[in-house]
């Protein structure tokens, strides 16, 4: 994961509450098999008119916000579906930090796994930042995870809080699976003390396939059998 220490960038204001992850990445893009290329799909239904023409009414399409890397928005951002495609899309579009009064739990967590910093600021500060962003074209902020502040170049500066452990992981760009695997001993010990099993007492119609064998090739229209 890409570490996050300090970032300065153009701010884009998305003045909506309760933006859900269905809006951040609509469901038609959840069939992808990789994490790449989701930037195009960000806010798809708001951002584009039919034929993928940019919708001139949508704030991210305004020339003054082109190249924005900090998203300023309202409370409960990222509610709804757990899809991690949402942070993938934000990151791929170019956002490194988000500023809002609050976030939904799963989304907040997903951001940290992808090198995006979700900053929580009280409503009054967020209001102030909306004012400044709208008034000053090219308004930029610096989000500093090291000293835990958000600031602009005219002296506006506010502290924010992040859990110390999450901060450390993001600063270092740690792979947290690697961190957990250091405790392999403890996991094995837990499994000895609390044996967990999922024994099937009555046969159900499921498949566990030996590695080389395929039960079903998904037939495709026009394309014969798919590669399975």
């Amino acid at each position: 994961m890409q570490p996050f220490t300090k970032h300065t960038g153009l701010v884009a204001p998305l003045d909506r509450v309760n933006v859900d992850t269905d809006q951040i990445v609509p469901k038609q893009f959840l069939k992808a098999l990789t994490r790449e290329g989701f930037g195009r799909t960000l806010f798809y239904d708001w951002r584009y008119l039919p034929g993928e023409k940019p919708n001139p009414d949508f704030v991210l399409n305004w020339p003054r916000y082109r190249g924005a890397s900090i998203l300023l928005t309202r409370s409960n951002f990222g509610c709804g579906s757990s899809r991690e495609h949402a942070p993938w899309a934000l990151l791929d579009y170019g956002f490194r930090a988000i500023i809002a009064p609050s976030y939904a739990d799963i989304f907040y967590n997903n951001c940290f796994k992808n090198g995006i910093l979700p900053v929580v600021l009280p409503d009054a500060h967020v209001d102030e930042l909306f004012r400044r962003t709208q008034q000053r074209e090219g308004y930029r902020l610096t989000v500093d995870l090291e000293d835990l502040t958000v600031s602009d170049d005219s002296g506006w500066r506010q502290p924010f809080q992040v859990d110390a452990f999450r901060r450390e992981c993001l600063l270092k760009g740690w792979d947290d699976i690697g961190l957990t695997l250091r405790f392999e001993e403890q996991i094995a010990e837990y499994e000895r003390r609390h044996p967990v099993s999922a024994r099937m007492y009555e046969k159900v119609d499921a498949t566990v396939l030996p590695p080389q064998e395929s039960i079903h090739r998904y037939k495709r229209l026009g394309g014969g059998e798919g590669e399975a």
Binding site: K31, A32, L33, R217, Y218, K219, R220, L221, G223, G226, E227, A228
Partner: peptide
């Protein structure tokens, strides 16, 4: 399957 992308997902 008509939906090729879904087919790839199932596979």
């Amino acid at each position: 399957l008509v939906d090729q992308v879904a087919a790839a997902q199932f596979e």
